[in-house]
Computed example of a mutant assay.
Amino acid sequence: MTDPIRIPDDLKPVDGRFGSGPSKVRPEGVEALARVATTFLGTSHRQKTVKDEVARLRRGIGEFFGLPDGYEVIISNGGTSAFWETATFGLIREKAQFAEFGEFGAKFVKAVTDAPFLADPTVHKAPGGGAAYLRAEAGVDTYASVQNETSTGVAVPVKRVTGADPGALLLTDATSGGGSLDVDLTETDVYYLAPQKAFGSDGGLWIALMSPAAIDRAYKIKESGRYIPQFLDLVTAIEQSRLEQTYNTPALATVFLAAEQVDWMNAQGGLAWAAKRSAESAAAIYGWADRSAVATPFITDPALRSNAVATIDFADGVDAAAIAKVLRANGIVDTEPYRKLGRNQLRVALYPTVDPADVEALTRCIDFVVDRL
């Protein structure tokens, strides 16, 4: 039996959490939560104590993204998976078009395809590692794409569809891109995300930045008489958010930690700072992979490489799963690839919470492990 590989402490990152979601939660946020535990946790979400935190989160998100006039920050329960169903019931009138280039885009496609009250969507697909794009199509009232595909590490710009029918909406899945990648919100109608990635909290919420046109669409669909399950009622989510609360009881710790993270990022310089910090981490890991004899970026087109989530392939004969196992045994965790992608690779979160110096340290640790496997 061989001795386990021990990575020297002076090579290790200060914080060894590189998960793509749930992501690293800042210790300072946990400490802040502990300080208010007896007055906040276990209290009613209909009372001022909790509503103030929901308001803080909504206000901070709006400041962080530079919310355009008329746009609103809407918060509800269930995470991105719940939002896909909510949008299926409450935002698509008849026909949608999708750009699908990974597992997360495919899940929204399935929700819409399965809906008996909607037409079959048009779907533009690209294989893992590539990107698919939307294009104008008569009769499409809702377009949907992913800003950052968490499963593959492909990122694309957020841009309205030129030539789309008047009134057509664009929905942008920013689950893992929001907070790490730059965006002009006027280029989309719904920019939706979850707090367990760049916003350094836990899961269980969805957050959507909605244009006036999207809000108007939600009300018109509800007024049409379409059956909408109460939990997935977007108008309810809108109206409850305006009251600084959610329809169902939220996870209070999730709300507080997300609000702490947003305030921290705003204090550092907001989205411009966060995007720059993620870009520095991306430069560190992609630069290392480009120089490596055994590793290479999975995304061959540099223009598509995500600054939020990096995927790194390894050469035949170098077992990425073994690398991840050794890293985990040394306190460097969650570098395993997306399970369904099935590649010999590591996946590394580059969210603003992650220090670029820790990403540099991770690359040194990988080299150390590879030399000894």
Results as ranks from 00 to 15, higher is better:
Gln261Asn: 15
Val156Ala: 12
Arg291Val: 02
Thr246Gln: 10
Ala144Phe: 10
His124Leu: 09
Arg160Tyr: 12
Lys125Cys: 06
Ala136His: 13
Ser201Gly: 05
Lys51Asp: 06
Asp316Arg: 09
Val333Ser: 02
Asp15Asn: 15
Asp10Met: 00
Gly317Phe: 03
Lys276Asp: 13
Pro127Asn: 12
Ile332Ser: 08
Pro22Ser: 13
Leu373Arg: 07
Thr113Met: 13
Ala310Ser: 06
Val348Ala: 04
Val50Lys: 08
Ala272Phe: 01
Glu137Pro: 03
Gln268Ala: 13
Leu209Arg: 00
Ala329Asp: 13
Pro8Ser: 10
Leu362Ala: 09
Asp233Asn: 14
Glu137Gly: 10
Ala214Ser: 05
Leu346His: 04
Gly200His: 09
Pro4Cys: 09
Asp334Lys: 13
Gly130Phe: 13
Gly42Ser: 03
Leu341Lys: 12
Ala106Asp: 13
Ala174Tyr: 07
Pro27Gln: 11
Ala283Pro: 03
Met1His: 14
Phe40Pro: 00
Glu187Arg: 15
Val123Tyr: 06
Asp3Ile: 11
Val235Phe: 07
Ser306Ile: 04
Lys197Ala: 05
Phe65Trp: 11
Leu41Ser: 12
Pro195Ile: 08
Ser278Leu: 05
Asp69Thr: 10
Arg59Cys: 00
Gly269Met: 08
Thr254Ser: 09
Thr43Arg: 14
Thr236Leu: 15
Val326Ile: 12
Tyr191Leu: 08
Asp202Leu: 09
Val25Cys: 02
Phe368Trp: 14
Phe108Gly: 10
Val354Asp: 06
Thr122Tyr: 15
Ala132Phe: 01
Phe98Gln: 05
Val294Gln: 03
Ala361Arg: 08
Thr172Lys: 03
Thr39Ala: 13
Asp3Met: 13
Ala168Phe: 11
Ala144Met: 12
Arg328Tyr: 06
Ile5Val: 15
Met210Gln: 00
Gln196Ile: 00
Ala274Met: 02
Gly105Thr: 10
Pro22Asp: 07
Gln245Phe: 10
Asp141Ala: 10
